[in-house]
Design a protein around this nucleic acid. Sequence first.
DNA 1: GATGAATGAGGTTTCATTCAT
DNA 2: TATGAATGAAACCTCATTCAT
Lengths: 191, 191, 191, 191
Amino acid sequence: MKYKDEKKIEAIFEATLRLTGTVGIAGLKMSHIAKEAKIASGTLYIYFESKEELLNSLYAHLINQGTLRKIPQFSHLPVKDQLAKIWESSLIFRVDNHTQIVFIEQFSISPFISKEGQKQTKKFTHHIKSLLDKGKEEGQVKNLNTQLMYSLLVGSIREFANERVKDKKRANKKFIAETFNLAWEAIKETA
Amino acid sequence: MKYKDEKKIEAIFEATLRLTGTVGIAGLKMSHIAKEAKIASGTLYIYFESKEELLNSLYAHLINQGTLRKIPQFSHLPVKDQLAKIWESSLIFRVDNHTQIVFIEQFSISPFISKEGQKQTKKFTHHIKSLLDKGKEEGQVKNLNTQLMYSLLVGSIREFANERVKDKKRANKKFIAETFNLAWEAIKETA
Amino acid sequence: MKYKDEKKIEAIFEATLRLTGTVGIAGLKMSHIAKEAKIASGTLYIYFESKEELLNSLYAHLINQGTLRKIPQFSHLPVKDQLAKIWESSLIFRVDNHTQIVFIEQFSISPFISKEGQKQTKKFTHHIKSLLDKGKEEGQVKNLNTQLMYSLLVGSIREFANERVKDKKRANKKFIAETFNLAWEAIKETA
Amino acid sequence: MKYKDEKKIEAIFEATLRLTGTVGIAGLKMSHIAKEAKIASGTLYIYFESKEELLNSLYAHLINQGTLRKIPQFSHLPVKDQLAKIWESSLIFRVDNHTQIVFIEQFSISPFISKEGQKQTKKFTHHIKSLLDKGKEEGQVKNLNTQLMYSLLVGSIREFANERVKDKKRANKKFIAETFNLAWEAIKETA
DNA sequence: GATGAATGAGGTTTCATTCAT
DNA sequence: TATGAATGAAACCTCATTCAT
């Protein structure tokens, strides 16, 4: 990737995300991406060596900015509150950036993904699991298999977000609180 | 018809599912499907008019069998037990037929899906929601937004199943019970 | 060609002629010919080694029965009357067997025609030219280039027949007489 | 458009005509057309959506130029002279552009022709018939069925031209005059 | 002999990539 | 750098021919 024109790269990324939402990764064509980004198809190859590199770059770009950035700053709060904060930012992010989410999910199982890309999702996972383990130690979270609880959180937040997008609504305070409480009920230690 | 038969269609479908698991919908090629199904590429076109029709047929085929078949027969049990039964069969189905699940999820956002295919998932959704409503009336399920509880169930079961597949394990009794209890904690009415 | 069943060969020929009329030689498919002849496509290969052989056989078959058969028997009549007789039978033949004519004309310039087929049209040509030469000697026909007069006769009879077919009419006495007289005017010796 | 140009379309058309002459419409292959036109096969699809569209475009192109262009300018001459002029240009055109003629005749009965293409030949027909009608009124042309006379002219000019091509000669003044006089004898009013 | 499903070579078409401008 | 027409490998699909029944 060259950095001649960040604006253009951004336009290409956005075009790609938009198209993935409509035709899926299987339907992406370089010529369409170019047209959607309002550049010539040859220009794509000034910024990216190939379609594969374009998609992998976009993937890396998305992974490196998601919710992750914001995680550290809450580390002083109690476990439940930290989870609530992550829940909030994740939900908002997933609802507001649905095209990106769709891209990431599709790309993960496409023939384009490189060995590189496959390990980048793990940081987020690791952070949540650490929190759950801490919660267990502190007696706020059930003493169950961490992986199971993690799956419940991640799976349901995904579904909540998709539902919200389907309804064309944003994630307001009330929705965030209700859904978090629901999930929290599942994992919290009860007396 | 002399040897043109159901067996061959089944072989084509299975080959397609297997390949979708490895290369995704984006990587599916008719020649590969043929080879995987151990037939000549021309033979594919005896059974299906085009790649698009093949994929849509497979989609319809999968939608028309899934867990749905088994739902009715539990209708005499209490709500929690019915949900547990559905949970069990869904989880087992999703783990044992992961390639099919992957295909369905990818196909839904691919450029191949026809108008037809898009409306077939709703029966399952409706049945679960009815159960939750009944549970609310009977005081066993929290008096919360049904959609939210539905999303939690569906989202987490998806994730549980994926996790299980990733670990290359089947869904045994213990796993099923643990995960169901976890999810049930979230939605059950607490005195 | 085997002679197991003349009826079937006839059916195949007729099917081929009918289809040539609708889709042209370029559009002929063995499977269509089979369906039109109400036999299985494999059966075609019992009677003909290949598509090429089928078409060449049909061509030879048509060439060997056309108007030619009837030419000799008029040889005692005056030139004009002989030409009129040939004119009549040619016109009637071309109108009534239009599909055959179309086939012959298309086949002559198709990639299927074999070296063999190309020389079979010449007998007819030769006979007419002899007649014209005899007419010239006897002072009934203009003393012009025989080839030119032959072309006028052949070209216009072709067009007359096509016109008649286009109008979905048969070639009645009046039409035959009128057209012959018209052409005869062109070549007859005028005092 | 940078180098996409008319020249390339012309090259494609010419390549197609040349090949039609050798292998007929039935033998035309896109890859051969491309090679004959000295371009890549993919390039064909920049200019034409499909083989069908290429052939229809060529047909339309040929129909829209032929002799027709030159007809109007002779409208002040006597009928016989006008016919002679048209005869001359038609004959020359048919001899010099034999590949085009072959293409048009084959294409008209091929499976590729669209509804569009089928009605474009009529202008020429109409013009000649008007001339003949005028000739009848003015007493220069026989008072016979116009259609019949038209068929004789058209049919024989086709044959004269084909004969000339077969002999690999061009249409010189003498040949043009002789053939026209022959045809004119057929239709001119005598006494 | 008759059938028609199966085959696969070869045709048509697509689309990632190149390159002359 | 930017363009988009040109390229051609590789995909999709067809159809003459074969062959198990």
